[in-house]
């Protein structure tokens, strides 16, 4: 990265642009429906974007680790979190710690299976995660017979769906707990990626696998680990989603896979690996959720929503998801944006 003047940098930094788009979307919403950009409504929209944001975190780790890494199994992994936590909690707070540990461990282990297939059997990530996702989803159906047991406990409901309330003067401020959790996780993740060896290894194997290997990094093992993390974050997202919806449902994870990839691409993370920041993915997740929220407020039918969503996504991608393409040579394959 060469040094750019401050003003120009604002419009070339994809993370900043993403957050500008978030603001623009809220202004559009406010013009269409007064009250859309009220503080509490903004918090509600951010609350719903948390779940996509957690999936995008897993996706970010996998994509940054390179070698065409991608995880299409985040949706089924989210369902794993939902079903496991509800079956363990059974509505009781006393099981909370156990549920959290089991959900994280199970998500991590199931993610590692993806990583093993990709690193050691050489199966393409796109296909491996897709097929493994189908297997996991089918197993859940098999185990639960279609009727998942249990429900969220009061503590999980508070964390997933409740807010921290306090009075600021005469105004009652409500900040959803998931947003606080999200901010904490984001800070930790940014620290890990920027300042620790682990973070640098992920960027390193994503930028140049062979060079990293020659430096003595076990690239295959670390890439496998990235899929483990992805499964873990997805399952964690599912556990909090259970708190948000209270009753478990096998269909909660459907339609999350590709949006999580869209979110990170919008946030400026290159699908070629080795570059980008989770902050961009956060912005991407908020953009997609805000967009969905606006489309619901406008009361388009399902068909209209789909068409507009598709076009807006294309426009966002055209605006800045591609690299500065000066020539055809930059277009190498479908993983390289």
């Amino acid at each position: 990265m060469n040094a750019k003047s401050g003003f120009k940098k604002i419009f070339t930094d994809k993370v900043i642009v993403s957050f500008i788009i978030v603001v623009v979307l809220f202004i559009i919403g406010e013009i269409a429906v007064p009250g859309f950009a009220a503080f509490n409504h903004i918090m509600t929209v951010l609350q719903t974007s948390f779940f996509l944001g957690m999936l995008s975190l897993g996706q970010t780790v996998v994509v940054i680790s390179g070698k065409e890494g991608i995880d299409l199994s985040v949706g089924p992994m989210l369902t794993v979190g939902v079903i496991t936590s509800s079956a363990i909690l059974m509505g009781k707070d006393s099981n909370f710690a156990l549920a959290l540990v089991v959900v994280l461990a199970l998500g991590f282990t199931l993610g590692l299976v993806n990583g093993a297939g990709i690193s050691f059997l050489g199966i393409a990530p796109l296909i491996m995660t897709l097929a493994w996702g189908i297997v996991v989803e089918g197993s859940l159906l098999f185990i639960t017979n279609g009727f998942p047991p249990g429900k969220a406990s009061p503590l999980l409901e508070l964390l997933g769906g409740g807010s921290l309330k306090f009075n600021l003067g005469s105004y009652l401020v409500e900040i959803p707990w998931v947003i606080i959790i999200w901010i904490v996780i984001t800070l930790i993740v940014l620290y890990v990626f920027k300042r620790t060896t682990l973070g640098r290894i992920f960027y390193g194997i994503g930028t140049n696998d062979r060079a990293a290997n020659l430096l003595g990094i076990r690239t295959k093992q670390f890439r496998m680990l990235s899929y483990g993390f992805s499964g873990m974050f997805s399952a964690f997202s599912g556990m909090l989603l259970l708190g948000y919806v209270t009753n478990p449902n096998l269909n909660l994870g459907i339609n999350y896979g590709l949006p999580s990839i869209a979110a990170i691409v919008i946030g400026g993370i290159s699908l070629a690996g080795g570059a980008g920041s989770y902050l961009g993915a956060v912005a991407g997740a908020i953009i997609l959720s805000t967009l969905a929220s606006i489309l619901v407020t406008f009361q388009f039918g399902e068909s209209g929503r789909q068409i507009i969503f598709g076009f807006v996504l294309l426009i966002l991608l055209v605006l800045y998801a591609r690299k500065n393409l000066s020539r055809d040579t930059k277009q190498i394959n479908y993983f390289k944006s």
Partner: peptide, 29 residues
């Protein structure tokens, strides 16, 4: 979009997928 604009097809065709599905739903709910 994939050739001239240079978008990653994985995501650009996911977007067009939504558009095509929406059009099909418009013609025949």
């Amino acid at each position: 979009f994939a050739g001239h604009v240079g978008l990653p097809p994985l995501i650009s065709t996911f977007a067009t997928n939504a558009i095509f599905f929406g059009l099909a739903m418009t013609i025949m709910p």
